[in-house]
């Protein structure tokens, strides 16, 4: 029978707290930046210019068909030879944004394509500018339509961020590994870390539901 001893793990709470902070800041920043990037890319892809569409397609295919670990190694270990040297945390943020945006671009593109062309024409007929049409008639309903898929992609982004410990970024997974190597209480460490990830995912889910109620709570006719 295995004897659990959580004392050494809980005694390392400052390390865990620092790890939680890094994971939360990294994930939240990557979500915000990634959302902005993927809206621009989705707009570019649906703009009708074949060159833009080709570039975005190439990016999406490249990222979606390669492992995240390889992408993060490329950014952290490979880019310095091209003159771009990033700290582990910046490299982790860049890798998360690049990875997340590829998936989110396709989700938002699907949302944009779900908007009936008649609505856009109606907007133009009412005298709205092109920007106004895109923001209020295309983008907002599009995001509303794909919101559930986006939230699961956001949660997935936060869970994926556990990989960044491979380039020595000090996230929650790295903190867990450090504590584990000091205390040898690996089972206990991973139980605690798993629970923390679970709590963070649930918290993010709750926040996303609140955002949905606040932003997308209006009646639509189908």
């Amino acid at each position: 029978m295995y004897h659990f001893n959580f004392a050494p793990v809980l005694a390392s709470w400052p390390d865990l707290l620092a790890g939680i902070e890094t994971t939360l800041v990294l994930s939240a920043s990557a979500m915000a930046i990634g959302l902005a990037v993927s809206i621009v890319l989705a707009a570019a892809k649906t703009s009708g210019f074949w060159a833009l569409r080709f570039v975005v397609d190439a990016y999406v295919e490249l990222i979606r068909n390669t492992p995240f670990l390889v992408q993060i190694f490329f950014i952290y270990f490979g880019l310095p030879s091209l003159g771009l040297r990033l700290t582990p945390t910046s490299a982790a943020l860049l890798a998360l944004v690049v990875n997340f945006s590829a998936y989110a671009t396709e989700i938002i593109r699907a949302g944009i394509e779900s908007i009936h062309h008649g609505q856009i024409e109606a907007g133009r007929a009412l005298g709205l500018s092109g920007v106004q049409v895109f923001l209020y008639i295309v983008l907002k309903p599009a995001l509303r339509n794909v919101y559930p898929a986006m939230t699961s992609q956001f949660i997935y982004l936060m869970l994926t961020s556990s990989v960044v410990s491979a380039i020595s970024a000090g996230d929650l997974a790295a903190a867990g590994n450090d504590i584990q190597s000091r205390t040898f209480a690996s089972f206990e460490v991973y139980i605690v870390v798993t629970l923390i990830y679970l709590v963070m995912s649930s918290a993010f889910s709750a926040i996303f539901s609140a955002i949905e109620r606040a932003v997308f709570n209006y009646p639509v006719s189908r």
Partner: peptide, 18 residues
Amino acid sequence: IQRFDDDASAVQALLSGQ
């Protein structure tokens, strides 16, 4: 201090100037 998962990653970080 930057901790990597293995010697290979640490060496890679040194070689790439990280």
